[in-house]
Write a protein that binds this DNA or RNA. Structure first.
Lengths: 196, 196
DNA sequence: GAATAAAGCGGACCGCGGTCCGCTTGTACT
DNA sequence: AGTACAAGCGGACCGCGGTCCGCTTTATTC
């Protein structure tokens, strides 16, 4: 088995079908919203069988996650390697505040998909994207000197959950300014008092 | 229409069926766990039609919620009218800490049902029980003088979410002591720095 | 107790997520 | 090119949540 550039162990037809499915899914979501995305419809539109959806993505949520990740890749790049205060270079507390602000602002655009990707029992806590978010948060929290940064990262991530933020924005009419302010208060409080 | 004691507008047969269904559900959960509870099975066991389940409880999650509420009634009583520090009489920060500790400890017993009652997109944020929790939290936060107590209550409640806590306990092996400690740090930080 | 309206009831039915398994296709080796 | 085999594929199939609608029971009025 010889592997070539861009190959991650996938057969060429499999890779092609992954793209077909992702594109089909993106079109359906754009047209009807994530709630209307059925695995049948996306398979039909992609011109493949339904089994292929599950082979590639595990389940419906996996497909949505893959979609959300494509949309969120630039966000990841921004907080990992972009300009401060979101990216490296700024003090950790500033980066935390910027991260929350960016996460909240992002909801208007990608929130629907992110929420749809969460399945019963809240977000997939062990999904790579979630892990990356928490890793980032815990790194910043550790720099600040917060006790138990891993667990604190879970706490903070729980509030940045798409389902919650969208609910607050849409059903409770909370402005992004208010959400951001409350986030700032929380992380500032942790940074000031929650030291080791 | 003459109403008698205990009557909340339900016809007698309806009330009887509600009890039959709740009892049947409790039995199934006790025997097989909440994941095995199907609406068909509970209807069959209660000796009623499936439509009745939906007439009484709206959906599967509603049934689980009703079940969880029965189990959690004593907890509600404890933090609303029980002895301090959980109940009234203690300083608000102490009550907050006690509330988190009690919520965390409660998971071992009722966590399964509480998690099962949460549906896609996290917990039912507007369910009366959730509202009561947040009302309690926001009251204590307001006493302390925290900015925007309503929103802070959402933040704190997000961390006390059953799905998250159970995940941390079961899949990440976190002890209740560690969870409680982190909760204390968080609320103490808010109380110290997050003032208006 | 007869009439009547409303509330309740039940189970057939539907759509969707997810599985399964026999068939096909791509890949590596000769 | 030929062969062998793993990987991929597709769509029939299943179980469950949720809806719908014609029938039954209950409560009220006269």
């Amino acid at each position: 088995m010889i592997r070539v550039a861009g190959d991650d162990g996938e057969r060429t037809d499999a890779a092609r079908n992954r793209r077909l499915l992702l594109d089909a899914a993106a079109e359906i979501v754009a047209a009807c919203g994530p709630d209307k995305l059925t695995t049948d419809a996306v398979a039909r539109r992609a011109g493949v069988g339904k089994g292929t959806v599950y082979r590639r993505f595990g389940n419906r949520a996996g497909l949505l996650h893959a979609l959300a990740d494509e949309a969120g890749r630039s966000f990841q790049a921004a907080f990992m390697a972009g300009p401060p205060p979101l990216g490296p270079g700024a003090p950790p507390l500033d980066r935390l505040i910027a991260f929350g602000e960016a996460s909240i602002g992002r909801m208007r655009l990608d929130g629907q998909i992110l929420r749809a990707a969460e399945q019963r029992g809240g977000p997939d806590l062990e999904h790579p994207t979630q892990q990356l978010t928490r890793l980032h948060l815990s790194m910043l929290l550790r720099e600040i000197g917060v006790q138990d940064p891993e667990l604190a990262a879970y706490q903070l991530a729980a509030f940045l959950n798409a389902g919650l933020l969208l609910h607050l924005q849409e059903n409770r009419g909370m402005t992004n300014a208010r959400l951001t302010a409350s986030w700032s208060v929380l992380v500032t409080a942790l940074a000031t008092t929650g030291r080791r």
